[in-house]
């Protein structure tokens, strides 16, 4: 089916999230939420697990034009289930009109998505719940000041994985949430990036034609957590794709396709070098072993994809 979003200029102009939030200047997650809500349009409910974005609305102010619901960190997908089921019941029994229906969006950070909320998410996907899930993956517990989450990348430093002589930041690998979600065989799961808004719009549009779980994991640069200048957020997100660290892909009923492929990938250190959380890999001395290992991990991934 042809896309309504041929170029960036086709972006919906109506803002569903108005200015005045408490989020940091240059928040990658804020941009993702803005674009995602534009694509859903009015008549959506955002069910927001505790995290940075749950401070979008703080009494008595809300930036959302449509409905929003703050839920505990572990159970946003369960609230989505309750709302979706109740709307279906009310429509079935003609107690509300079809126009009163809401698109249900679960919005969580990577901490909730990969850790404390994974069980509730697995349950909702398993039940075939008709909902969108946007996980803004800023690779740490940003809302509490950036501690390591299960989504923090290998060798990145956080407040709870400081770089010391013993370990290069976190010694654990980033949890592969895409594959965990994909294993449930949902109709749609994709990765997106704020630097590739066109790709993102196509994916949301495509998912919108499907019923059931429609899941998105968004690379979400975090200026204070990653130690980057706020104006570099898009550049760094773009570098993540160009170096192959953040593959843009989708899986329809479990079948994976990569949507953006850079045949000539930039070296990963171009991405790593832009961020304070990887600074210990370059200063005081260059840590060749770790940098090479990270390059190798990325190459291995893409060699398997492209073979």
């Amino acid at each position: 089916m042809a896309s309504r979003y041929g170029t960036l200029r086709d972006i919906p102009l109506e803002e569903e999230v108005v200015p005045g939030t408490m989020l940091c200047a240059g928040c990658g997650g804020a941009l993702l939420v803005r674009i995602f809500e534009k694509m859903l349009g009015p008549g959506a409910i955002t069910i927001n697990a505790a995290g940075c974005m749950s401070l979008l609305s703080v009494f008595p102010y809300t930036p959302f034009k449509s409905s929003w619901f703050y839920i505990a960190m572990a159970s946003a997908p369960a609230a989505a289930q309750g709302v979706r089921d109740a709307l279906d019941i009310l429509i079935d029994r003609k107690r509300i009109e079809r126009e009163d229906d809401l698109k249900v969006l679960v919005l969580t950070g990577d901490g909730a998505a990969s850790g404390i909320g994974l069980q509730a998410t697995s349950g909702a996907i398993h039940r075939g719940l008709d909902f969108y899930y946007l996980a803004y993956d800023n690779e740490g517990y940003s809302n509490t000041g950036f501690q390591a989450s299960e989504s923090s990348p290998f060798a990145s430093s956080t407040k709870t994985t400081p770089p010391t002589d013993l370990a290069e930041g976190s010694i654990l690998q980033k949890k592969d949430l895409f594959e965990i979600w994909r294993a449930h065989k949902p109709p749609y799961v994709a990765t997106i990036s704020p630097a590739y808004i066109g790709d993102m719009m196509h994916k949301i549009e495509k998912a919108g034609r499907m019923s059931g779980p429609k899941l998105f994991i968004a690379h979400s640069p975090c200026p204070p957590g990653w130690g980057i200048d706020s104006d570099k957020v898009i550049r760094i997100a773009r570098l993540a794709v160009e170096t192959g660290i953040w593959p843009l892909k989708e899986a329809i009923n479990g079948e994976v396709t990569h949507t953006i492929i850079h045949k000539k990938r930039r070296p990963v250190e171009e991405y790593l070098g832009t961020q304070e959380r990887f600074a210990h890999l370059f200063r005081p001395a260059r840590n060749e072993r770790i940098i090479r290992q990270m390059q190798q991990n990325t190459d291995d991934y893409w060699n398997a994809v492209l073979k």
């Binding site: 409905s67 009163d100 229906d101």
Partner: peptide
């Protein structure tokens, strides 16, 4: 919660 009555809940 429905489209006719937007509200921010649990704020």
């Amino acid at each position: 919660l429905n489209a006719r009555n937007p509200v921010s809940m649990g704020v």
